[in-house]
Structure formats: structure tokens, C-alpha cells
């Protein structure tokens, strides 16, 4: 292991070589403050047994902790939120790193009871750094329980006020208050509800204000039609590029109008055991398809 493996290289060729240095800032724009000055490590406190173990697994020096916050956060962003938060106990260097995480990803929260899950999300959102935007919130299967409505509303409210760009939520039933937001930053929205479990339909309203939305995926949603008998839930999404409608229905057998000039990808899956058990007509205007 070359001891020179540090992240702040100063290649020593003359003149322009120093141009290399700025580039090392790498991925994230420099909104993170620089890492706190390295503290002198305290003398080892670990018992010898621990040390032996340590060497067995990881003979090298701690080359990761010396990286800047934004790179550590980059690693954390690939983890489940619960694991990411737990890194705060690794050492003093890590204690606040997770707070600048710009993702909330929960891949499998089936182990947590409804209450604990709710508690976790509330804590996560209230203790993270409020000045840091949240780019993506991904709540993967299983479905959030019906009682979680307040939580889902809270998550959405927080997300939209922190400039969220990507939202993926599985929730048994989305109430209308879930759609009381507008956002100029939201790029992708993926919602899955399930009226087969809840017995209650989730309505995706017309004329939502998400001007930057490029990808929309809806599963098990119901669309309402206007007075003219046509449901046009996507007409306001001028940037929409990809639309996936999976097992959705239009109430009262009306038309579904899809009219999006920039739409390039469209996927529609139908399912006959929907509540209405009827098909509906689709009017399609998508010159870019």
C-alpha cells in the first residue's frame, strides 16, 4: 500500500501541473465545507483482541476517513438510510456526516413495525441538516401501511420544501392531500398504490404543477375526467419524456388523453380485474414517440 495514496495530490511537475489540483474536487460541487482538520488520533483504546481482528480484516490504514465529507456522503448515498445513519458511531470523524446525506432510501422496512418506521423517518428528517437539499426519496416495497398517511404527507411536504428531484413511494392509498404540492425541481415521480389491498382508490389529479417532470410512473391509480369527458392528468407536464401507466383506470369509462409533445417512451399495462372492470379509450398525441 503506497503511503502516498492521499486524496489531495500535488503532482510536482512544473507550471500548469497545478491545474490538476482543482479537478480533484471531483463530483460534488463545493457546497460542503471542507473536512474538519484532522485530529491527532488518540492512543489506541482497543483491547489487543480487537486489534488482531482489525488486522485480519483490514490490514491497511484508514484511507477512507481522510476523504472529504462529500465523498463520504457519496458512499452513504448508496446505502439504506438506516445503515447510513449508523455510520455516525464509527468515530468522531463520522458523527455528523450522514446529516448532509441528500437521499433517503429505505429498501426494506418490513422488519420495522409501523411505529418504529414512522419514528425513524421523523427522526431522520428532523435531525438531518436542514440546509441540505434532499435529492431523492425512495421508499421501496413493501407497501407503507394505511395508517401512515400522516407520515407520507410529512415526507412529501419535507421533500418538496427541500427541492426533491426523485420520488418513489409505495403506499397503500394516496389521499388527496398527498397531491397538494407543486415543485419546479421534481424530475421523476414513481408512485405505486394498491386498491386491491386497501379497497380504496388512489386518485391522481389533473393539472398538477410539476413543470420539470420528465419521468412519471403510476401503478394502480385512478384518473378523473373533466366536464368534457376526458381525463388529462398529464397535460401540464411539458417536459415529460417517459410515462408508465400500470394497471390504472379512468372513472366512468371516459377517455384518457395523453398529449405530450416531448414524450418518447410510453408503457401502458392494463389489468381486467380493476374495480371498474372496463376498458377506456386513449387519445394519444405524442409526436416524439
Amino acid at each position: 500500500m503506497a503511503p502516498s495514496k492521499q486524496i489531495t495530490p500535488k503532482p510536482k511537475t512544473p507550471k500548469k501541473q497545478q491545474q490538476l489540483a482543482p479537478a480533484k474536487k471531483v463530483r460534488a460541487p463545493r457546497k460542503q465545507p471542507p473536512a474538519p482538520a484532522k485530529k491527532v488520533r488518540a492512543p489506541r483504546k482497543q483491547p489487543p483482541a480487537m486489534k488482531a481482528n482489525q488486522q485480519q480484516l483490514s490490514p491497511g490504514p484508514d484511507i477512507i476517513s481522510d476523504l472529504s465529507d462529500c465523498i463520504l456522503i457519496h458512499i452513504l448515498s448508496f446505502m439504506d438510510a438506516q445503515e447510513a445513519v449508523q455510520t455516525c458511531i464509527l468515530s468522531k470523524r463520522w458523527i455528523n456526516v450522514w446529516k448532509k446525506l441528500h437521499t433517503l432510501t429505505l429498501l426494506d422496512y418490513s422488519e420495522l413495525s409501523g411505529k418504529l418506521f414512522e419514528h425513524f423517518v421523523f427522526k431522520f428528517l428532523s435531525l438531518r441538516d436542514d440546509q441540505t437539499d434532499i435529492h431523492s426519496i425512495l421508499l421501496h416495497p413493501p407497501f407503507l401501511r394505511k395508517e401512515c398517511n400522516k407520515l407520507v404527507y410529512h415526507i412529501l411536504k419535507y421533500a418538496f420544501s427541500h427541492h426533491v428531484q426523485h420520488l418513489l413511494i409505495n403506499f397503500i392509498c394516496f389521499k388527496p392531500n398527498c397531491f397538494s404540492f407543486s415543485s419546479s425541481t421534481l424530475k421523476s415521480l414513481e408512485l405505486t398504490s394498491d386498491h386491491l389491498i386497501s379497497g380504496v382508490i388512489s386518485i391522481f389529479p389533473n393539472s398538477l404543477n410539476f413543470p420539470a417532470l420528465t419521468t412519471l410512473s403510476l401503478s394502480y391509480f385512478t384518473f378523473f375526467s373533466n366536464e368534457d369527458g376526458c381525463a388529462e392528468p398529464f397535460s401540464t407536464f411539458n417536459m415529460l419524456n417517459t410515462l408508465i401507466i400500470h394497471h390504472c383506470q379512468v372513472l366512468h369509462k371516459r377517455h384518457l388523453c395523453i398529449s405530450n409533445a416531448k414524450l418518447e417512451n410510453l408503457s401502458i399495462t392494463m389489468c381486467y380485474y380493476m374495480i371498474s372492470r372496463t376498458y377506456f379509450e386513449i387519445e394519444l398525441y405524442a409526436p416524439s414517440l
Partner: peptide
């Protein structure tokens, strides 16, 4: 990043410390 995240997924704090070579200064 994904590889590192996967390798420390579901591991205890002690394991992750050893993985990164982090000295516990608490």
C-alpha cells in the same frame, strides 16, 4: 461506492470499523 456499500451492508459497527480501518476514538 455501491461495492463498498454492499460489503458493509447489514454489518455491525465493529465490522465496519475494521473494514475501513477506522480507529474508534470514542
Amino acid at each position: 461506492s455501491q461495492v463498498i456499500a454492499d460489503r458493509i451492508a447489514n454489518k455491525s459497527v465493529e465490522y465496519v470499523r475494521r473494514y475501513f480501518g477506522i480507529e474508534n476514538d470514542f
